[in-house]
Design a protein around this nucleic acid. Structure first.
Lengths: 149, 149
DNA sequence: GTCGATGCAAAGAATTTGCAGGACC
DNA sequence: GGTCCTGCAAATTCTTTGCATCGAC
């Protein structure tokens, strides 16, 4: 099911880009495919490195430019998890369960989790504030089980 | 009451630094005083600029070094709100109500808010996860009332 | 006096941008 | 064929570091 969803994401992204008048290209497709395969966050450098190991090499500038477009179209979400660089993950279509992140201070790994009560509270909160809330991130920081003790 | 609390923070910070064997200095005191006066986040550059306008000029390197120490001692919290640079704010003593941030996509301002239900849910969540949660950030993004068309 | 703190300037790291050539439609 | 895309390298921006000097204890 993961794989099905992944394929969907890349396909949906390609379609959206085409609709918006963007042209197809091998490097861009490779980036989309890789992002679609992610269950959690990756940095621009991660993407470039991963692709470099494969057959399709992609310049880091292209990775950034592609991510910029995807972010504008809300196909990926940019996250600042406190590391050196920004990280990105495929955005979930509206209403679908999306997750948040626990970041380990020791190993730096980001571990995704979801929680319905949390979403509900944030929903209510959004209504209480006068502002229009378009997106939200919850970041927990601490020590993960592997690094514990 | 704000002012009392601010004075407390700077005083507490100075005391903690002294305890840890750090030496006092005019530049550092100026940074501490300024941070203590903040109700919300500022960037390192904000701090340097603000002090430059006053009588005590402080090099940006000193600002960063001071912030680094303060962060280690958990006297300030570093926040990645998605802007270009990291922002900092005085940390609240344990257990005191701390706030989170709404960031406006148009004007970039960070608006603080607090919510007890949110804290409670995150508390429970921390227990559900096997990891030790040491801190958490909730960031809402959208459009603030002033920028709302 | 000793050792931490400062400021400047240089080094680093992440991200963006300019440009010439190449590919898509 | 025009326009968008790509890769490289240069430019930017934020942050850290090296170093000589100054000041606190």
């Amino acid at each position: 099911m993961d794989r099905t969803q992944s394929a969907d994401w890349a396909g949906r992204a390609e379609a959206t880009l085409r609709e918006r008048g963007h042209k197809a290209s091998a490097p861009r497709s490779a980036v989309l495919a890789l992002i679609g395969r992610q269950e959690c966050v990756v940095s621009a450098q991660d993407i470039a490195d991963e692709l470099k190991r494969g057959r399709q090499k992609v310049g880091i500038a292209t990775v950034y430019r592609t991510l910029e477009i995807l972010e504008e179209l809300r196909l990926v979400q940019r996250l600042d998890l406190g590391g050196e660089s920004a990280r990105f993950e495929p955005a979930t279509p509206d209403g679908h369960h999306h997750h948040h992140h626990f970041v380990c201070r020791i190993c730096g790994r980001a571990i995704p989790f979801e929680d319905d009560s949390l979403e509900r509270v944030i929903d209510v909160l959004g209504k209480r504030l006068k502002a229009t809330v378009e997106e939200h991130d919850v970041i927990l920081k601490g020590v993960c089980p592997d690094c514990e003790g």
